[in-house]
């Protein structure tokens, strides 16, 4: 492995993505440190989801650099390879395997061999059992372990998905609107959970809910028209004239 070009965990520089002339990302630059939590805000169409697509390999940028751990070029890897590098992603609408039970959802997400033959001959080890146990505990779904994921409530699905992300043991978690559709209590619990996770790994949270962002109490980046409008503490960003104009409103 060659010498890292940058010490940061995730490094985006001058990333541009255009769809038929529309620039979803416009020379976006962003850096996330190891074990840093970052909140991304911005109006609809600011490029938040496209940014996540670029990081996870779903969308190829027209130009720009996207490096992970300073060495891995994310613009040439596919989703599976990027996931194996240690980047986990939670979708805006909770996406779990509805027909599998909660335990199997976690089992599938557990870090390990990903090939079909390994899967065909795999047997559940004690270590895996313990990991699943711990994860169930952490996302508070122990009581629902044998229920089909499709039967869970919206909030429980969000938590299951976060649990699946943790099972991957990623170095970086991308979390898209985790608080959407949750009750106040669930929102507060989710913020706790994410803060806890961020102690050991980097987390990028995209969120519209300003209370939730305030709860997280982390550095905030505001995107607008595909590039960074403002960056800093929530107070500093929300005092920014441009941010107020395009996003927060007067």
């Amino acid at each position: 492995m060659s010498e890292p070009i940058t010490p940061t965990l995730l490094y985006l520089d001058n990333v541009t993505v255009s769809f038929d002339g529309f620039r979803a990302l416009n020379a976006l630059s962003l850096a996330i440190d190891h074990a840093e939590m970052r909140a991304i805000i911005g109006p609809n169409g600011a490029g938040k989801t496209t940014m996540m697509d670029v990081i996870t390999g779903k969308t190829r940028p027209n130009q720009g650099t996207a490096l992970f751990e300073g060495v891995h070029d994310l613009t040439v890897l596919d989703e599976a390879a990027i996931a194996e590098l240690g980047i986990g992603r939670k979708f805006q609408t909770p996406t779990v395997f509805d027909m599998h039970n909660v335990e199997d959802n976690l089992l599938l997400a557990l870090k390990g061999e990903r090939g079909p033959f390994a899967a065909l001959f795999s047997r559940r080890t004690t270590r895996e059992r313990e990991r699943i146990e711990a994860l169930l505990e952490r996302v508070r779904l122990s009581a629902h372990r044998y229920r089909k994921a499709g039967e869970l409530s919206h909030g429980q699905k969000q938590w299951l998905e976060i649990g699946m992300l943790l099972a991957q043991e990623p170095k970086l978690l991308l979390v898209d609107e985790p608080a959407a559709g949750m009750t106040d209590q669930e929102t507060a619990d989710t913020a706790d959970l994410l803060r806890d996770i961020a102690k050991t790994r980097a987390v990028v949270v995209v969120e519209h809910d300003m209370t939730f962002v305030r709860d997280l109490g982390v550095k905030v980046t505001c995107l607008h028209e595909g590039s960074v409008l403002a960056e800093g503490s929530l107070d500093a960003v929300s005092a920014n004239e441009r941010v107020i104009e395009v996003y927060l409103g007067r």
Binding site: A80, F91, R114
Partner: peptide
Amino acid sequence: SRTRFLGYR
């Protein structure tokens, strides 16, 4: 896509 993002090819 969920499966893909979990690292399965």
